[in-house]
């Protein structure tokens, strides 16, 4: 579903992402993990079509910036931002119009109910807390019933119930064949749901492996992560 081939992004002389290559298949949950500043957000923004880049990114076989690709992917940014004078429901209506969705209302009601937002339908964007903005952002991305969804640090700011609900949604999406890419630096938050791990360090994808292979090797993601990002500590037997 998602194919990233030699993605390179430079900001002047600074290389933010260097020749990143990976794929996320249908029904697969990929996690992009790495320390702060590793290049995760730049990678996600490039895939979402917000940045210019070198290399090739396709979603469902179409270039990521094409209309066809945009129709099938959802994006949840690291910092949620909403329209100040649109209500929660207005946001969903805008998305429905922008993506030409039909019969979306019941799906929207259902999403709001799952994130405990039904009673906040008429609240304006400017009156929402950060956590609520994040929930609106999630609902907007999910409303389009995406074939591929990417989320940049999606758990930050959410309450425990919303985190649990989001994990359930990830599993439902996976079952429906949606490709999911989650960027995070909190390993615990995705420990029980990931299928493929992509570790980024110093702008490069330095590790790309599936849960099956990793577990067959008797390794843990946490150990691999620290052995790559902080080899001295890992050798000393220190884990987070």
């Amino acid at each position: 579903m998602l194919k990233v081939n030699k993605l390179t992004k430079n900001y002047g002389k600074v290389i933010a992402v260097n020749k990143a290559t990976f794929e996320i298949d249908n029904g697969e949950i990929g996690v992009l993990i790495g320390p702060n500043g590793a290049g995760k957000s730049t990678t996600i923004k490039s895939i979402a079509g917000l940045l210019r880049f070198e290399g090739e990114i396709t979603i469902g076989g179409k270039p990521n910036k094409s209309k066809e690709a945009k129709r099938i992917f959802g994006y949840v940014p690291e910092s949620p931002a909403v329209y100040e004078y649109l209500s929660v429901w207005d946001h969903l209506e805008f998305i429905a119009r922008a993506y030409n969705l039909t019969d979306w209302e019941s799906a929207a009601e259902n999403l709001l109910a799952r994130f405990d937002m039904s009673d906040k339908k008429d609240k304006l964007g400017k009156d929402l807390s950060k956590g609520m903005q994040q929930k609106v952002s999630l609902c907007c991305a999910l409303l389009i019933k995406p074939s591929m969804i990417m989320l940049d640090e999606p758990m930050i700011g959410l309450d425990p119930k919303a985190i649990k609900e989001l994990k359930d949604i990830f599993l439902e999406l996976k079952r429906s064949g949606c490709a999911i890419l989650i960027s995070t630096h909190i390993l615990d938050s995705i420990a029980d749901i990931w299928d493929k791990a992509l570790i980024m360090n110093e702008s490069e994808i330095v590790y790309n492996n599936t849960r099956e292979k990793l577990e067959a090797d008797g390794e843990s993601l946490e150990h691999i992560f620290f052995s790559i990002t902080e080899p001295e500590k890992a050798e000393g037997g220190q884990t987070a």
């Binding site: 979402a48 940014p77 931002a81």
Partner: peptide, 13 residues
């Protein structure tokens, strides 16, 4: 505004 970036830029408009 950032809402445009997050919602409109990524839409098929």
């Amino acid at each position: 505004r950032m809402a445009d970036v997050n919602l409109a830029f990524t839409s098929p408009i």
